[in-house]
Nucleic acid binder design. Sequence first.
DNA 1: TTTTAGCACTGAACGTTTGCGAGTGCTAAC
DNA 2: GTTAGCACTCGCAAACGTTCAGTGCTAAAA
Lengths: 348, 348
Amino acid sequence: MLTKRQLLVLKEIIRSFTETGQPVGSKTLMAELPIHVSSATIRNDMKALEEAGLIAKTHSSSGRVPSTKGYRYYLDNLVEPAAASPYEIAAIQQGFGGHFYKIDEIVAQSARILSNLTNYTAITLGPEVTNLKLTGFRMVPLGNHQVMAILVTNNGNVVNQLFTLPGEVSSDEVEKAIRIVNDQLVGLPLGQVARKLQGDVPSLLFQYMASPDGFLDIFGNVLKQAAAERFYVGGRLNLMDYLDDSDVRKVKQIFSLFDDDTSDINQLLGPVDDKSGVRVQLGQELTPDVLDDLSLITASYNVGDHGTGMIALLGPTQMPYSKMIGLLDAFRAELAKRLTDYYSHFEQ
Amino acid sequence: MLTKRQLLVLKEIIRSFTETGQPVGSKTLMAELPIHVSSATIRNDMKALEEAGLIAKTHSSSGRVPSTKGYRYYLDNLVEPAAASPYEIAAIQQGFGGHFYKIDEIVAQSARILSNLTNYTAITLGPEVTNLKLTGFRMVPLGNHQVMAILVTNNGNVVNQLFTLPGEVSSDEVEKAIRIVNDQLVGLPLGQVARKLQGDVPSLLFQYMASPDGFLDIFGNVLKQAAAERFYVGGRLNLMDYLDDSDVRKVKQIFSLFDDDTSDINQLLGPVDDKSGVRVQLGQELTPDVLDDLSLITASYNVGDHGTGMIALLGPTQMPYSKMIGLLDAFRAELAKRLTDYYSHFEQ
DNA sequence: TTTTAGCACTGAACGTTTGCGAGTGCTAAC
DNA sequence: GTTAGCACTCGCAAACGTTCAGTGCTAAAA
């Protein structure tokens, strides 16, 4: 069992190491600790902490560095979240100052604000509606055989795609196709829409169109876009500041996490759950090995009926956790408020 | 005046340095050169080249490295472009394999193909039409007071933006606004559209709408988007491979060149001119100082009436120029062909 | 006049040695 | 349980020597 003083020592080691990045020795601790004991006493405490696996030496006669287990213990038992400063609150407010036409814009802006505020890398995910419905479908002819397909979902998301009609398709046929979609598919959950697209809809289309394949392709494509979870990353470049300078390969690997499709990020952030707490995961506990000396703070935000989303902060393991946890907590609340406002604007 | 053999030595120094990245000594040259003279003779030639400022030593007893002036001389007088290999041609063809719905997609894909092929960073600019015209304007109501504004230009470019109507605007008013735009503005060059938007159009709108300001805002916004030159960057991450590992700040600065608005890139690439040659600019000759030990190869491509565009390759100064120049030349031709095909598809 | 062999010299790169300092563990006394 | 004292460890940086690729110069050969 660890004594109170030993835990104080652990806390101070983490604080000092976060600040300086250097292993912490007994003399430094003696100077910084609120209680006054000799360096030898502290050395004894450090030995106990080391035996418990909470701290480690970089070499046989060096100061101590927190271990992964030490961080874990700290995060689970010792950390005291610090409330966001008025300056930070103001910065968040200002960041949301502009006018937004889409939820996605708000979510993307969130990533920017968070990364600016922390100098780390922020990842944001829009609110995920469990049963997303198709609420509208339009096709707009633009001349020159070009047509824009627009799809609207009940969470206010709008996706569009341009395509070119083969010459032989008449506008009459297109009209009918639109009517079929509106009659058969609008109002249904996206999953069901996708199923019907495999099922009875093609045969219906065949009655009115010579070759509905092209149309089905396009529709399937925008549907996929609408259903896809999009994530936004802010402050990618900050990675280079807090990552080991030397390891260029690692930087590239992490960058490509963000470039690739969503599956990597979804795996990283884990399932979006309703527990609206702030959670810290250490790099070594995470799946992609590249994140070894990094750490991920995630928080979910809740927009009532409109679902639950997620924001995350990726930074070095030596992060000022108490500050960052407090900040993310404040941000989560603010983002939820903004989105609720946004939606209520529609419903009034 | 430099002798033939001295120029041969210069050429070999550049070739060898490009390959190994190491300063080249007289013995190495003796082994590699086609003519057989002793290392002492080569040393004398090297001295002459050094006095002419074409090569330099890294320290008093080192091998020689090409100087900026040396590269310039090489590029102006000695380089022999190597035709693209069949493999490269095939890779280009394959890269363009898919189906494209917008010119911008083709241009963006070009940047990807080029960077994959070279492992450098590619920048592409779409064909610039000197007098771009507004050929279409649509507004599509999506429910919940949301409206999508779509603007089409005569180069086939389509931009769209979502916005929210204030509650008090009637759909009748919107109808009229659309008609005014179509009557007054469609068919005109974008510059003139912008001017009329400041001039008589607002007063016309005032006759039919209570507060046309919001509408004008949106229209101005999409108009700006349509007129903006967009550029595409492929292989950003390759920068980290060919840039000095140590200088993280430099990497960040160059990255932010790509993130910021187009003005930086436009300045870098220079004006798009019709001279469809491949041009090499050395980093030290370029305006942003960060590009010091880099080099930029630019080439323009011509799509007849549909304007002239530009592709560029950013890489280390020690590039295999002859190969890269040949490659860019081949790519330019292929891209021009693809775009011409794309446009002809519309006009038939 | 041009080319070549020979030689002394230079400076980077790399390994070894050395001294210093921050830090530890242990012991014995408080 | 706490503290002073001491021997010990190890990383780090400076100092030093060796090696090696390369140069410039000179004098002889072509």
